[in-house]
Write a protein that binds this DNA or RNA. Structure first.
Lengths: 191, 191, 191, 191
DNA sequence: GATGAATGAGCGTTCATTCAT
DNA sequence: TATGAATGAACGCTCATTCAT
C-alpha cells in the first residue's frame, strides 16, 4: 500500500478523537487505530502528541478560514462582511460541531500545555477582526469606538453563541441567529 | 498549631496550582506542598483530585458571586445593574487573574472529564443573565430582542474581554473598559 | 467511660472484620469503628495491625481449645476422644463460621507476612494430635501406623470438612458428619 | 533478542515472587525485574495484578494436572489410581515446593480478594475426586460410604501431608508417604 | 487513657515514545 | 516506510501509624 493519504487519515482521526475525548484523555493508540495505521506510523508524520494536536488544530482552522474566505471580498460593506462572517461561522459550527469542540476553545482555562499556544491562534483571529472594525470605523460605517474592544465583543459573541450548539447539539438556524446577533451588535439593546 | 484552616489552605493552594498548570498537569503532591500539608491530608478533605477541583471551582465562583451581589439590588435600572456587573466582573478578574484562569473557562474545548461539569456552571450564569435581560425588556429599558441571544452575547463579551488580562496580565481600567463595552452593547456599533 | 472492656471489644471487632475482609483488606479504621473506639485507641492495646491479628487469632484459638477441653479427659478411649474432638470441632465451626475463616487457614499460600506465624500455630495442633495418636497406638486401640502421618491425615480431614461450611455457609450435622468421617478413618475405605 | 517467551518468563517470575511474598506483598515491579522485562511489559500480557495471579495459578495447576494424567487410565482399579494420584501429587510437590506455596492453599483464610476464586478451583478438584470415589464404590472396591465425605478427607490428607514439605522444605519419600497414607485411608486405623 | 487529624511511604496502572525488524 | 512490542517515568490514592490535645 503506497498511497500517501496516511497523514490525512491520521489528522482526520485526530480531529475525531481529540474532539471526543479532549487532549489529555485522547490516546495516540486510538487515533492510530481509527486512522487504520500502526501506532508507530503516527510518529513518522508527527513528532509528538502535542505536535499532532497542533497540526490537527491548524488543519481545522484552515478549513474554517477557507470557509470564511468570501468575507474578504472587499467590495462589500464591513457590516455585510461581519454578518456574513457570523453566519458562515455559525453554519460551519452547525455542520462541524465535533471540530468546534477542539478548535474554538478560546484558551482560557484550557490545559496549560496548550493554553498559550491556543491563545496565539486566538490573537490572530482577534487581530483580523480588529482591522475589520478599524476599516468599518474609517469608512464611517461604525461609530468611532475602540476597535479592539469591539473586536473582542464580537469574537466573544461568536464563541458564546456556539456553546450550546457544541455542547448540547442544540439545533440553530445560522442565518436567523446571525441576524439577531447582528441586530443587537449593530443597533444596540437600548431603546 | 491549632487552627484548622487546612481545608482553606488546600483550596487556596489548589487555585494557584490548577491555574498555573491546568487540571491535568497539576499534581496533588504540589498542591499539598504549597498548602504546607501532607499529601494524605488532601484526601482527608477531598475525595479525589476531581472533587478537589470542583470544590475549588465552586469556592472561587462563590467569591465571585459574592463580589457581584450588589448587582441584585433591584431598585436600579437593569442597564445600571449590567454596567455594574461588568465593572465588578472586570475588577474581580483584574485582582484575581489567577482565579479567572480556572474559573472562567467556558467549557468548550476543556478536558472532557470536566467539560460538561463546567458547562453546567456556565448554564447557571447564562440563565441568571437571561432573566436580567428579560426584566430589562419587560421594563422597557431594552428593545424586544431575544433575551437568550442578548445574554449569550453579553456573557461572551464578559469572557472575551478578560482573556488578555488573564493570559498576558494586561493592565486594564475596569471602569473604563466596562463603560466602553456597555456603550457598544447598549447603543450598538452602527451610526 | 471507664470500663476496660475496650480491649475485648477491639478483639471482637477484629474477628469480624478480619474474617470478612481478610488480613490485607481489613482496615484498622473499620475495626476501630466497629469496636466503637477511636482509631488511636487500637494502638493503645496493640502495637500494630500484625500484632492485633495475632492476638485475635490466639483469642479465637483459645475459645476453640476451651471448647475442646472435654477431650482431654483421659479416662475415655482415644477413639472416643477423637470422635468427640471431631464433633466438637465441626460444631464449633458451624456456630462460628466467621471465626473459622481466619483461624483455620493452614498457612500454606497465606500471605507471607502471616504464613510462618500461622504455620507455628498449626504445628502446635499437629503435635497435640500426634501424641494423641501415639497414645492410641500405645494403648493398642490403633494399628501401629506412623502417628505423624495419621495425625496429619486427621488434621487434614478436620480442615477439609469445614471448607464448604465456612465458604458457602453449607449446613451440616456435626454429629453425623463426625460419625461418617470417623467410620472412614477408623475402619478405612476398603472392603 | 527474537524469542517471544516474554509471557512465559513473566509467568515464571510470577510463580517465584507470589510464592515468596504472597499475593499482596508481591510487587509487579519485582516480577518484571525477575522476568527481565519492563514493568509496562507485564501489562502488555496481563490486564492487572489479579489477572496475572490467576493466570499464573492456572498455569501451575495445569502443569500439576498434566503430571497427574496417568491416573486417568481407567483400566486400573480405583485404589491403584488413588495411590498413584497421591504419590504423583507428593512427588510433584517435592519437586515444585515453590509452586505449591501458591497453588495449594485451599482457600480458607486466604485473602478475600482471592478466597472465592481459589475456592472455585478447589471445588473442581473435589468434584473430580468425588466421582473417583463413586466409581470405587460402584465397582465394589470401597465400602458404600458417602463419596463426598471420602473425597473431602482424601483431599484434606493430600493438602495436609504437603504442609511441612512446603513450609519447611522437609524431605519426604513420596512413594513411602503415599503408601503409609493409603494404608491408613484404605484399611483404617482401627485394629 | 482516648482520640482522630495528619502523615508519607508505597504501589498499581497508564500511555507517550522508541526502535528493532 | 511501517509497525507494534517494549519501555519506564509519572501520579493518584490508600492506610498503617503517630502524636498533640
Amino acid at each position: 500500500m503506497s498511497e500517501g493519504g496516511k497523514r490525512e487519515k491520521i489528522l482526520e482521526a485526530a480531529v475525531t478523537v481529540f474532539a471526543e475525548k479532549g487532549y489529555h484523555q485522547a490516546r495516540i493508540e486510538e487515533i492510530a487505530a481509527r486512522a487504520e495505521v500502526g501506532k508507530g506510523t503516527v510518529y513518522e508524520y508527527f513528532a509528538s502528541k502535542l505536535e499532532l494536536f497542533q497540526e490537527m488544530f491548524r488543519a481545522v482552522l484552515e478549513r474554517y478560514y477557507n470557509r470564511l474566505q468570501s468575507v474578504r471580498e472587499e467590495g462589500l460593506p464591513v457590516v455585510e462582511r461581519l454578518r456574513l462572517l457570523l453566519e458562515l461561522h455559525l453554519d460551519f459550527i452547525c455542520q462541524n460541531a465535533r471540530f468546534a469542540r477542539v478548535a474554538f476553545a478560546d484558551g482560557v482555562g484550557y490545559d496549560q500545555e496548550l493554553a498559550f499556544w491556543i491563545y496565539e491562534q486566538r490573537k490572530t483571529k482577534l487581530e483580523r477582526m480588529r482591522s475589520l472594525f478599524e476599516e468599518g470605523i474609517d469608512r464611517g460605517e461604525f461609530r468611532p469606538v475602540d476597535a479592539g474592544v469591539a473586536a473582542s465583543i464580537f469574537l466573544g459573541a461568536m464563541t458564546s453563541l456556539i456553546v450550546p450548539i457544541v455542547m448540547e447539539g442544540q439545533e440553530a438556524d445560522p442565518s436567523d441567529l446571525a441576524g439577531q446577533a447582528m441586530d443587537i451588535l449593530m443597533k444596540g439593546l437600548g431603546t
